[in-house]
């Protein structure tokens, strides 16, 4: 008999890679390696796009943060920019109102804490319930936070925002690595989580929550845990975005459109895979800021949303899982 369940005496290292990475063939390993190498060497082959790639790295963090909860469990958040925006505004408000020279080792943890607190306000009332409650709360949450920014305009700068945040660096190459490295580290952690028991349980919750509850798994606890990981990720990304732009306005970091961009990136890249949304972020940001600009400032958005619709209807799994399985079948993959 030859199925993958007869594997007595399998070497530990092999078992570990199989547990966490599946069984990629040599072409898949090669393409993943090439992609990683390409990202690490962008300054040498695409120097003029460094700013765009750096921005895409931050958006990759956001998309992964969305994906670990919404992409895995199918509890769709329409308000994740409230978490990242809340973190960005925490950095901004501290610098703007308390002390312009406040060190990052103070503002950064506080910003992440803000994302967690906002996240818990969303999650605790809604995640114990199935159904659309979570989506409604997240949607309302981001609208409320945006409104609060206007109401407390004397502290937040209102529509014009806060410009006092220090930028990371003016050297584009450094800027790129400052965003890429944290993104890859977060990505590595979340890929391991996604490929572990936890990720499988979260995806099973997305497919059939009642069934997985009857296996003895406390689904509410797992959802809250996933959301906490998501909030921390959004907090890191949000604080980074504040320093990336050096200014914070509702429309660049907070409004609901930013949340929907995160959804779009995860959909294009491949929901529930973590690695997919990373790639999706680069595809989306490059389309938005470089390619689709030929349609004009409004037309590019129309084109983008139509592309996302195309994916939802015709390629639900997203582009990267599709490519991955195509490459997987090059060597005459097993039975798929």
């Amino acid at each position: 008999m030859s199925n993958e369940y007869d594997r007595s005496g399998e070497p530990v290292v092999q078992r570990f890679t199989r547990e966490f990475l599946g069984e990629p063939n040599r072409y898949q390993i090669a393409s993943a390696g090439v992609a990683l190498l390409a990202l690490l060497t962008v300054p040498f082959w695409a120097g003029q796009y460094l700013y765009v790639f750096a921005l895409a790295s931050i958006w990759a963090i956001f998309a992964m943060g969305w994906d670990i909860i919404s992409g895995h469990t199918n509890y769709i958040s329409f308000g994740h920019s409230a978490l990242s925006g809340g973190a960005a505004y925490t950095t901004g408000v501290l610098v703007h109102n308390v002390n312009p020279d406040m060190a990052m080792y103070i503002t950064f943890p506080l910003s992440i804490l803000a994302a967690i607190v906002i996240g818990l306000l969303f999650a605790v009332p809604t995640l114990r319930l199935e159904g659309p409650y979570f989506s409604l709360i997240t949607l309302l949450g981001v609208l409320v936070l945006t409104q609060l920014v206007y109401i407390y305009g004397e502290y937040t700068g209102g529509e014009l925002g806060i410009t006092a945040v220090s930028t990371l660096t003016y050297n584009l190459t450094n800027l790129y690595y400052y965003t890429l490295i944290p993104m890859l580290l977060i990505g590595a952690v979340l890929v391991v989580v996604s490929q572990s028991n936890i990720g499988r349980i979260l995806r099973a919750i997305g497919e059939n929550e009642a069934a997985i509850e009857s296996s003895g798994i406390d689904t509410t606890r797992f959802k809250l845990w996933a959301f906490l990981m998501s909030a921390i990720t959004m907090g890191i990304g949000g604080a980074m975005l504040a320093h990336f732009y050096g200014n914070i306005t509702p429309s660049t970091v907070l409004v609901v459109d930013r949340s929907l961009e995160m959804v779009a990136i995860a959909v294009i890249g491949g929901m529930g895979t973590i690695a997919g949304p990373i790639g999706g972020a680069f595809v989306f940001i490059i389309l938005r800021d470089e390619v689709l600009t030929v349609f004009g400032s409004t037309g590019r958005w129309l084109a983008l949303w139509l592309i996302v619709l195309f994916f939802l209807v015709f390629l639900r799994d997203g582009i990267f899982p599709f490519i991955w399985s195509r490459i997987g079948s090059i060597g005459g993959g097993r039975d798929e």
Partner: peptide, 23 residues
């Protein structure tokens, strides 16, 4: 048949209509 996909697709369609109206 997929409630979650429909949920996301309908909001993307709304965004597309918003941009079309803006144009």
């Amino acid at each position: 048949e997929n409630v979650v996909i429909t949920f996301m697709a309908t909001i993307m369609a709304a965004l597309a209509l918003q941009e079309a109206m803006t144009m």
